[in-house]
Each structure stands twice: as C-alpha cells, then as structure tokens.
Design a protein around this nucleic acid. Structure first.
Lengths: 204, 204, 204, 204
DNA sequence: AATGAATGAGCCTTCATTCAT
DNA sequence: CATGAATGAAGGCTCATTCAT
C-alpha cells in the first residue's frame, strides 16, 4: 500500500480533483480541468481511475477511511466527545479538523443534495462515523442518570441536525458569512462557539 | 407544444427547471433535459430566458420575492417567531412551508457550496430574510429583560446555524434519513421536533 | 410604386441591412441583427421579404437600378467619361459618388469573392453598367484616331481592372489605409488622384 | 480517420479550410463542413485549433510567413521587380504565383471588406510585404534619375491600388470574367498583361 | 402592417473516454 | 507510467423561418 511510483501521481490527481470539485462542483468540473491543474496528461487520469465517477468515489472512500482511522485510533481525543463537560472546549479543535476536510465535505454535501441517485450515502456514512461514538457514550452516561426515555434514534437525530450539520456548515461558510455580513472572522468563530455550546451542549 | 400564452410557457419552464435542478444539480442538468420535461422546443427556452444561468437566477429571485411577500405580509403568523413560547409549536408549520420550497432550497444550497463565484449570495439573502425579523423581535424581547449583552450579530449566527440550517436540512433530508436509518418518517418528524425545540428554543 | 405605408419600413430594413451586411458580411449578419437595429419585429422582415437572400437581392437590384438611372440620365455628367481629358478632374467626384455606395459595394465584393455560386454576377453587372458607356465612347474616339487595333474586350479589361477596381477599392479602403499607414486622409486622396490619373488616364 | 501524425492532420485541416473558406466565406463555413471535407472528426479540429478563428488566423500567419520567406530569399527573382524594364515580362509569373494562393487571398479580401474589427490588417501586411521591396528599389532608381519629388507614400499608394490590387483581382476573377463576358481565358490573360503593362509599368 | 410565440435544424464548442505508441 | 491523437455524444446557444393573432 506504500507504492511510491505512480501513487504520487494518483494522489496529486485526487488532491487537485478535491480542490476543483469543491470549487465548481462535480458536474461543473471536467477531466481537462483536473489534468491541467495537476499538470498531467488527460489520458493518464484514465490510467489511474476507471472514469470520472471513480475519482469522486475514491475521494469519498478515502475520506471515510481516514475518518475511520481517526475515530478508531484517537480514543483519547474523541472518546470523550462533544456532549461531555470537558468536551465543550474542544469545539474549536473539531472545527479546525473539519476545516482541513472542507473541500471534500462540500463535495459530499453537494452530491447529497441532488435528489436522485444515492449521493447522500457517503455523507450519511461519514456523519454516522463521527456521531455514533458520541451517541453511544451519551447513551451509557444517560443510563447512569436513569434518563432512559431517550432513544438512540433521538440522539442520532440530535447529533446530526444540531451538532454535525451546524459545525460542518460553519466551517464551510465562515469566510462567506464574514464577507457577506461584514464581520471579522475571529469574532465570528467566538460567536459560533458560544452559540453552539449553548444550543447543542447543555448540562441539564 | 401548442401555442399557449408565453407566460404559461415561462412558468412551466421554471417549474420544470426547479425540479430537475434539484434532482441533478444545475451543472448536471441540460437545457435538453428541461425542454423535454416541459414539453417545449429547446430554442423556446432561449426565447424566454437569456441563457441557462438566467433560468436559475429567475428561480432564485422569484423565490426571494415570494419569501419577501410571505415574511412581510403574514405578520400574525411569523411576527411572533421561532424563539417565543408559542412559536415552539409552529415548527412543523415552518418545516412544511420550507418543504414546499425544498426544490429551490436544495439548488440554492448546492450553488452556495461551490467555493467560487458568489453562489452563496442567494442563500444568504434568503436566510437573512427569514431570520432577521425573528432576530429583531428577540432583540426587543431581550432588552425588556435587560439581557443586553447579546448582540444582533450573535443572534443572527444563532438563528442561522442552529435554527435555519437544521430546519432546512431536515426538510431536505428527512426521506433520505428515514430510508438510510430505516425509521418511519412520522416518528422522525416527532423526534426532530423535540430535538430542535430543546436545542434551538429555550426558555431560560 | 410610391406606397407610403409599409414602404418606409421596407426602406428602413434595407438601409439597416446594407449597413450591417457591410460590417459583418452577409453570413455574419442575422435577421435578429437587422430587426434589432431597424427597431422592427423579426417576423415583420418576413412580411416584407421572402427570406434573407431576398434582402440582399433587393439591395443589389435596387443598386443596379439606381446606377442605371444615373448612368442613363446624367448624360452630361458621365457621357464624357474617365478617359477623356476633361474627365481627369472628375475622379474625385466619382470617388465621392462611390463613397456613398460604399456599403453595398463592399457587400457585392464580398459575395463576388466567394468562389461558388454566382455571387459575382451583381458586381459584374454593376461594373459593366458603369464602364460600358465609357468604353463605347473610347471606341468612337479611337476610331477617329485610326487606332483600331484596340478591341472592345481590351478596353473593358482595361476599364475594369485598372479603372473601376482601384477606384472602388480606394473608396472602401481609404480610412483603413490612412489608419494603417498613419497618413492623413486628405493627403491620401490627393496622392491617389495623382497616381490614378497617371496610371489609368493618359493622353498618349 | 486513421491515426496519422498530428501535424499531417493539422495541415490537412488547414488546406481544406482554406479551400472551403474561399468558396463559402469564413462565416458561411461550418466546422462540420471542414471536418467532413477533411475526413476527420469534428472534435479533432478543436484538438488542433483553439477555435474557428484560430484556423483562419493560422492560415493568414502561415501565408504571411511563406510570403516573407519568398520575398526575402528569392532576391534574384523579385529583387528587380515590377517597375523595371525587364520585369514587365514577369507579370505572368507573379500572376501565376498569386494564383496558387488564390484561396487564401480571396479569404483575406473578404475579411478585409468587413467594415468592423481589424480584418484588413492581414491583407495590408501581405500587400506591404510584396510591395515594399519594389517601392524601395524604385526609390533608389528614382534618386539616380533625380526625380525626388516622388515620396515613398505615393509609391506605396501607386503599387497597392494600381499594381497589387489589379493583379490579385485578375487572378481571382479571370475565370468568372471569362465566363461572364464569354471570352477565352488565354486571350484574357494576354489582354490583361498588355493592359496592365501599359497602365502600371511605364518607361517614361 | 405588425407582433409574440414557437420550431427544427444547425452552429461552435466541450465532454468523457479510448487507443496506439 | 505516460502521452499525443482521435472519437461519438452531448453541451449551450443561435439560426432562418413560420404561425396565430
């Protein structure tokens, strides 16, 4: 898995594709766009990938894989997740982590929003991966507090729509928001941190 | 297509375009797609619209206009908005309203997510329109309670990322969520209502 | 033949068409171009003309007709034509006359240059009309001088290639020439007058 | 088309384009026309040329380049040019040379006649290249004869309007002329030779 | 005499993809 | 691994023309 030869090219193609997909959208991006930006021959892309769809599929599965590694390995970092008291301060960390994955996340979201096909699967898998550990931990914690009227389903809905989505969108939109509403980014991050803490994480 | 009034044709084109854009995305939709589905000649589309972009622009501005009318006119329905005690029960109404505009909303979101150009403007304008009235009312309410340490900016961030976005996304994703997580839609709506109320609307 | 109603429109269309044809060429001009510039409805053009070709045909035959009138009527002006001693001074007059017809002349030339169809007929008819009278006069004059070794054919070739063409082209190109070679137009006219007189008109 | 060297294809496209442009004019020619006649795929044309304009530009600059080589290299053939005594007999040579370039010359002329843009530049450059050497030689010759009241400008005007243009037009129009005036081509060539010699080249 | 609406064919151009080398 | 050349299909858009009013 650590081939050095053409894998560099493959990675370059993927990196460039991620960037351009996030700028123009999947359908708005041509293989020409990618090959030019990557500085490689157009036909070479078809040596490394079956077709255009294969590029985005590779990007998605690569992202899922990386997330899996991250969620699985970094027990200590993510095990005590969003809902816990001490986790509240870690929002900025998460935002900054997702920021590094902004490109692919926006592509996932765009594809998810197409109301045909199964473009949402990747996004859901991705969200599930990030969320479910938290949810499970919360379930354990809640059981100890005897609050057993809260189902796993509810927690998933909670984490996805009021936790995952706002964070992801904030990381995707903060620049645009700051520009549109004429507000400094640092302050915006602060504001969101506060707002998010109050709405999503509560110590009732 | 038989000769009908030109405005009827124009509206049909817009309606069909909204549907297909939301299914395939703007770039994934061809003029052929639209003309076929609308049952009109391809060239006729260019009689009614300057170009492809003009179609989506018309859809966006039409939506914004409709929203403006709605927000402006229905004082009684929306004046006492999301955050107020009585407003809590109206979430379903809003969800159902936004559901009717699902198509164009998903298109707006897709375009907003493209990290180039100014595709996000429409979404922001749209959100601003829906949110700002609530925010202003909240500001008044807060002043009475002497909680003046909350700025308009903060409320906007709050309403957008933890109010508007979750609702919009829920209305766009509920079917997909129900299918993916194998859960009944009615129950999902209930769950989201509860979850959203707890996170976004609070009577501290 | 002096209908006043729609004939104004017809004339406007012709005038505008001549202008645009001479700017963009026949094939480079669309009916849309003409209707917009004439401020009339596109379909109206098809009320006045059978089709696009009919417009250019009308322009050509109208021009030929006008030339015929001019050549036929103004005996005194044109009867003593280019080759005669006194005619030498009239070059500027002819240039200025052709200048008024620059538009249609350039269209004729463009169409003549297409090496297919019979686009050159109009140009030849036009040239013939202008030239033949001169040629006939010259023939008479030559007979008196007993120079009968010069055929009508030769005179036609002479008048067309070294008389008509240079004058026409000068009137079409003088602005461009002045611009390209950075020279004042008045001086250019003088130079051409001199040059043309020396080459085309000689009193051997 | 079978896979051949790319340069061969490119040349074939240019050759075919020149032919069809001269038949139908630039605007009257479609890429389809060219690709069909060249026996290549339509898209392949866009592999070799940026766009339609690029084809004609390539043709023009290629022609200019060839002319430059010819004028520069063939000192002995063209150095003693049109105006000199011995040059009179070489008219046919020049006519036959320009005849080989008839296609592109007619295209240049057509484009020059469009009264917009700068379509005349190529024609002027081309004419300048052919003429200026003659003009310079004439200047030298005239100085020796102390006829210094003739400016370079005048000679340029002379050579262009009474030398270059008639020759070019004769080579472009001789077939049409012969057909229209019902005259044999060989005789026409003779007539033009005589006529041109008398008008353009004189040994005063 | 005039117009808005409609159409089929065609235009220039780009697409994703393949093949021979 | 990598590339230049090639292709069929489709893209957005415009064309000349027609029809109903």
């Amino acid at each position: 898995m650590a081939r050095t030869g053409g894998n560099i090219t493959r990675k370059k193609i993927l990196a460039v594709a991620e960037k351009i997909f996030s700028e123009k959208g999947f359908d708005g991006t041509s293989i020409q766009n990618i090959s030019s930006a990557a500085g490689v021959n157009k036909a070479l892309i078809y040596y490394h990938f079956k077709n255009k769809q294969d590029i985005i599929d590779s990007l998605f599965s690569q992202t899922l894989e990386e997330m899996f590694c991250l969620v699985g390995s970094s027990q200590e970092q993510l095990d005590q997740s969003l809902h816990k008291a001490g986790a509240a301060e870690r929002i900025n960390d998460i935002v900054s982590f997702l920021s590094k994955r902004k490109g692919i996340l926006s592509v996932m979201l765009m594809e998810s929003l197409k109301n045909e096909q199964s473009g949402h699967i990747s996004l859901f898998k991705c969200a599930e991966m990030i969320i479910s550990k938290n949810v499970d931990d919360m379930l354990v914690a809640l059981k100890e507090k005897c609050n057993t009227d809260i189902s796993r389903e509810e927690l998933m809905v909670h984490e996805f729509f009021t936790g995952f989505l706002p964070i992801v969108f904030f990381s995707l939109f903060k620049e645009k928001w700051a520009a549109y509403f004429n507000c400094e980014q640092e302050k915006l991050v602060e504001l969101f941190s506060k707002v998010f803490k109050e709405s999503h994480i509560r110590q009732d």
